[in-house]
Design a binder for these strands. Structure first.
Lengths: 121, 121
DNA sequence: AATGGTAATGAAAATCATTTTCATTTGTGC
DNA sequence: GCACAAATGAAAATGATTTTCATTACCATT
């Protein structure tokens, strides 16, 4: 029953614990792994069911999968050159927790991104 | 240039200020309005550009559009029923500003959403 | 090893939201 | 009326995801 393909999981890990199904598929192809796109999707679904990864959505609607418990971080993205800095969000974590409690929400996650122009742009 | 079709906007309002493009289209059809799906999408895009509505994502990736007040706010969204609470994000504003300064970014904006399960779900 | 059954696999087709293309219509100023 | 830009929408294209279905790998039991 467990379709949690270990090769998919390990690829997700190698991708920085954060990638879409298509990206994982392309990554495995490029590395010469023989796998079907269908299997990648099924493995990811299974990993989500088993609560080993969780899933969010990009702005364009594409699903991205992330290892659970992975210290998660946020991004500071340059609108000009696309350069991205990983930043810490302790303040956000607290804020999210507070807001969730205040409204009786449980099992909460969050997304937060900052975008602007970097020094070069 | 302004493609903000007033019929689309008014339908979105009547839908409770919260609906997907497809839903708005079906609603207008059912009410006998003659409009094309393409036009609905274009009108919604335009409304987003004009900051009259903003757009989030359902769990299945479908985009949902909602009327939004002028005050900058964030969202607490229920993964179960889609219920949304507008929340304040003073902490976020400060955090974003700090992070931007720290890395020399200017002209910054940000997005932040919290999602979880509400009391009913 | 042979058998049978169940789960895993993946290619190809189907689905569904969204975008693009392009020919047509509408509106507006001259 | 005439030209020209903008708006419209049907149909095709796109892209992620799911479904179908035939094949294969895996295991237990003879």
């Amino acid at each position: 029953m467990s379709r949690s393909n270990p090769r998919v999981l390990s690829t997700l890990e190698r991708a920085g614990g954060f990638a879409s199904a298509q990206e994982i598929y392309r990554l495995m192809q490029r590395e010469g792994e023989s796998i079907g796109l269908t299997t990648v999707y099924r493995a990811l679904q299974s990993l989500v069911n088993d609560k080993i990864v969780d899933v969010l959505r990009r702005d364009d609607g594409e699903a991205i999968y992330r290892l659970c418990g992975e210290a998660h971080h946020h991004h500071l993205v340059c609108k000009g050159c696309g350069d991205t800095v990983e930043i810490e969000g302790g303040a956000i974590e607290k804020w999210a927790k507070m807001m969730a409690e205040e409204h009786g929400f449980r099992d909460v996650g969050h997304t937060a991104e900052i975008f602007g122009l970097c020094t070069k742009c």
